[in-house]
């Protein structure tokens, strides 16, 4: 049940974003969860309510977007969604590919905060958040090492 740890981190991240924006509370959180992140949406929802208690996020709606796995096929030169995560191959030509381009996300996409009083009559608009982060780094995986030479490791 690592979702509880994830939920605490989520609440912390959202609370910090709200504080930076000068908001006392958050009304909605939108998160993106990759299928390969090993985080279960239902479990996260359950833990989220617990983790949110007594924070600016308490009572905020949690909207979870599940991100399907997409792989890149060097032969077809296309990024396509996997048919099944039991087989990592190009859905078009069938060639195996370990080049995962989507599906590992574990990300707080946005939060909703009540409009502040001084802006009550102004139309809702996006506020500039912190600079965009680089793509999720997973240095212990995949591209750290050449694969080809090791593909037939055996004893």
């Amino acid at each position: 049940m690592h979702e509880l740890s994830v939920a605490y981190h989520l609440v912390q991240t959202a609370s910090e974003a709200a504080r930076r924006a000068g908001a006392a509370r958050v009304t909605c959180l939108r998160v993106r969860i990759g299928v390969l992140s090993c985080v279960h949406p239902d479990a996260l929802e359950f833990c989220y309510e617990l983790a949110a208690q007594g924070t600016p996020v308490e009572g905020a709606r949690l909207v979870i977007e599940e991100v399907p796995v997409e792989v890149y096929c060097p032969r077809c030169r296309r990024q396509l969604p996997l048919k099944t995560i039991q087989k990592f191959c190009c859905p078009q030509c069938g060639r195996p590919t370990a080049d995962v381009r989507r599906g590992k996300e574990l990300e707080l996409a946005s939060i909703e905060i009540p409009s502040s009083h001084q802006h009550e009559d102004a139309p809702a608009k996006d506020v500039q958040g912190p600079p965009l982060e680089p793509p999720q780094e997973q240095p212990s995986q995949a591209d750290s090492f050449p694969l080809a030479s090791d593909s037939q490791e055996s004893v």
Partner: peptide, 18 residues
């Protein structure tokens, strides 16, 4: 006078600290 919530793009990894 409507109170439309503001949406803040955050786009931060949840496990950023870790």
């Amino acid at each position: 006078m409507s109170r439309v919530p503001r949406i803040l793009e955050v786009r931060t990894r949840i496990l950023k600290k870790n």
